[in-house]
Computed example of a mutant assay.
Amino acid sequence: MNLNVYLAGEIHSDWRKELKEKAENLPVVFTGPMENHDRSDGIGEEVHGAQPDSISKDEAASRINNLRTSLLLKKSDLAVAFFGESFKQWNTAMDASAAIEMGKPLILIRPKSLHHPLKELSSRASVTVENISQAVQVLSYVFEEE
């Protein structure tokens, strides 16, 4: 059995790389948002041409990025949402909520310091852990036979 896992979260740090390396022996296929920040921000203009201002540019890109997220989340078996200390993470919250609304199991990774601001989301997640290693332990447990 292979699992398709959507990795929701900010694209500015290497948390996905760390998780993938720790889970390299598991039968898991990972998907997620476009990690090339310039490409993600520019895809709207790439498709529709130059936009008149930064708001129009953002809106054009966000529609295409939302389409990508929606398709990949729908195809996933599980979502992992990472909240770290360093970045504003509205997209992570949106993707985690979308996964829950789609009925996808969700592993929420958040440090103890973010317990309070994420308490409602955490209560709806399947599992909440404090770090990437714990998330990989949960994934690994799914495949254990005894």
Rank of each mutant, 00 (worst) to 15 (best):
residue 4 N to K: 12
residue 5 V to A: 04
residue 5 V to E: 01
residue 7 L to C: 07
residue 7 L to K: 04
residue 9 G to K: 13
residue 9 G to E: 10
residue 13 S to D: 11
residue 14 D to V: 14
residue 14 D to R: 12
residue 15 W to M: 13
residue 16 R to W: 03
residue 16 R to D: 09
residue 17 K to C: 01
residue 19 L to F: 02
residue 19 L to Q: 06
residue 20 K to H: 03
residue 20 K to E: 10
residue 21 E to M: 04
residue 21 E to P: 00
residue 21 E to N: 08
residue 22 K to C: 03
residue 23 A to K: 08
residue 23 A to Q: 09
residue 25 N to G: 11
residue 29 V to A: 11
residue 29 V to K: 15
residue 29 V to D: 12
residue 31 T to C: 00
residue 31 T to W: 01
residue 32 G to N: 03
residue 32 G to L: 08
residue 34 M to E: 12
residue 34 M to S: 01
residue 36 N to M: 08
residue 36 N to H: 02
residue 37 H to L: 14
residue 38 D to T: 06
residue 39 R to I: 07
residue 39 R to Q: 09
residue 43 I to A: 05
residue 44 G to Y: 01
residue 44 G to F: 00
residue 45 E to A: 09
residue 45 E to P: 01
residue 46 E to Q: 08
residue 49 G to F: 03
residue 50 A to C: 06
residue 51 Q to A: 12
residue 52 P to R: 09
residue 53 D to F: 00
residue 54 S to K: 05
residue 54 S to H: 02
residue 55 I to R: 00
residue 55 I to G: 00
residue 62 S to H: 07
residue 63 R to D: 10
residue 69 T to Q: 02
residue 71 L to M: 15
residue 72 L to M: 05
residue 72 L to A: 05
residue 73 L to D: 08
residue 73 L to M: 12
residue 75 K to P: 00
residue 76 S to P: 02
residue 77 D to P: 00
residue 79 A to T: 14
residue 79 A to I: 08
residue 79 A to H: 06
residue 80 V to R: 00
residue 80 V to T: 04
residue 81 A to Q: 06
residue 86 S to Q: 14
residue 87 F to P: 00
residue 87 F to H: 04
residue 87 F to Q: 06
residue 89 Q to S: 15
residue 90 W to S: 06
residue 92 T to W: 05
residue 94 M to D: 03
residue 95 D to I: 07
residue 95 D to W: 01
residue 95 D to H: 03
residue 96 A to M: 04
residue 101 E to S: 13
residue 102 M to D: 05
residue 102 M to F: 15
residue 103 G to A: 15
residue 104 K to E: 14
residue 105 P to N: 10
residue 108 L to S: 07
residue 109 I to G: 07
residue 110 R to Y: 12
residue 111 P to L: 11
residue 113 S to D: 04
residue 116 H to R: 13
residue 118 L to E: 08
residue 118 L to C: 09
residue 120 E to L: 12
residue 120 E to T: 11
residue 124 R to F: 06
residue 126 S to C: 04
residue 127 V to G: 06
residue 127 V to S: 02
residue 127 V to N: 01
residue 127 V to P: 01
residue 128 T to H: 01
residue 128 T to R: 02
residue 133 S to D: 14
residue 135 A to T: 07
residue 135 A to V: 11
residue 139 L to P: 04
residue 139 L to S: 13
residue 141 Y to K: 12
residue 142 V to W: 15
residue 145 E to H: 09
residue 145 E to N: 12
